[in-house]
Amino acid sequence: MSENNKSEKAVKKENNKKYWQFFWRSWTIQASWNYERQMNLGFLYGISPTLNRIYKDPKDIDKKKSAYKRHLAFYNCTPQTSSFVLGLSASMEEQLSQNPDDFDPESISAVKSSLMGPLSGIEDSFFQGTVKVLAFGLGINFAQKGNILGPILALLICLVPAWLVTWYGAKWGYTAGNQFLTKLNSEGAMDRVMFIAGVVGLMVIGSMVASMISLTTPLHMGTTFKLQSTLNTIMPKLIPISLTMFMYWLIQKKVNTGWILTVCIIGGILASVLGILKA
């Protein structure tokens, strides 16, 4: 009995360490934000301790490599809520390593993608909207009277909810994820979850293509014919989707990444100089 208690304590301690890892690494998730895949390297950094722990054995190095590469994919989500995604993905990676045969690794990517959208919505409306305006509205009032409490209060009001959301996000993501996945696996319902995550993930990515690539064409003839207005009557956002599908085609053709990046940058500058594209 006492031994049982001890191991329970040890598990709790170990889990707490994991939550802190998700917490801090979720706050640092934007340290290498890049245009191409945005916070992907930050996510990889966040989940790397988990992967290192799972694939400790040198003979698992190939599995470790493919796991690392899996998390190099595009990722963009608020730092405060990313801890939830990190926790959940970590528990999915653990499940995968325990049942490599009946766990589809792609479901991890699908779950990540399906969570990005709704969780980022929290950033825009809650943290960048409500909390920030409240905190700084109050802060300005104090500061205008020359009171140093202004900025201090503003920072505290921002810190508390951010701290709570990140901490409980990490905890719930990992524990709930673990319980949920174990239950699903025993019921043989993983297929269904993967299907749902796939549908949500793909629809979210589709929506992101339409809302996050802000390219239009300034081409026109005289003042009467504007190509973009004509395109808009056929299909708005035709340029973002065509560009994405073109890139997708290049990837299917196994064109080298370095080449594609060069084409993106040089092509973008050329298209802007020639007046074909406008951001």
Binding site: S109, L202, M203, G206, V209, T244, Y248, I265, G268, A279
Partner: peptide, 30 residues
């Protein structure tokens, strides 16, 4: 030019993500 190029790059990021998730059966959802 750099602003346009910076708007083109995410298209590649999305395409990479799609290349791991997109199948004929699932494409309509995208």
């Amino acid at each position: 030019g750099l602003t346009v190029a910076s708007a083109v790059l995410p298209a590649y990021g999305f395409a990479l993500l799609l290349s791991t998730m997109l199948s004929k059966k699932m494409a309509p959802y995208f």
